[in-house]
Nucleic acid binder design. Structure first.
Length: 111
DNA sequence: AATGTGACTGACT
DNA sequence: AAGTCAGCCACAT
């Protein structure tokens, strides 16, 4: 199983995974970011789905605040109901439709 | 080789 | 607000 795009050279793949995990680790408490933003920041703007894969299979996922990653609509990960509870614990607010209030909590990496 | 399935996104209705 | 559809990729069947 690989957690990175086919077209990447091994060195790029390592950088991609490193960047993804690094960004996730930087998301401030009470904020969220999106798969697309992470992918773009890592230099592969069309690989938002790969970010999801990388997080899903990341061994050290338990030590990362990966619950602070949602899709652009503010939807939480399917099949992971606990994610919403974790976010609510840090005062992240949800809209009536069950989506994160992105307007208020979206965070983007700087530089 | 072909098709279906996602921790996705954007542009439509 | 909620669906649908087309791109998007790696993987499983």
């Amino acid at each position: 199983m690989r957690d990175y795009p086919d077209k990447m050279l091994p060195a790029q793949a390592l950088a991609f995974q490193r960047d993804v995990l690094n960004i996730v680790s930087q998301i401030p408490r009470g904020h969220v970011t999106t798969y697309g933003i992470i992918a773009a920041w890592a230099g592969w703007p069309t690989h938002s789905r790969m970010v999801g894969r990388t997080l899903r299979y990341a061994p050290e996922a338990a030590s990362l605040p990966c619950h602070r990653v949602v899709n652009k609509q503010g939807r939480t990960a399917p099949g992971w109901s606990r994610q919403q509870a974790l976010l609510k614990e840090e005062n992240v607010t949800f809209k009536a439709n069950g989506h994160v209030d992105m307007q208020r909590h979206l965070w983007e990496p700087l530089l």
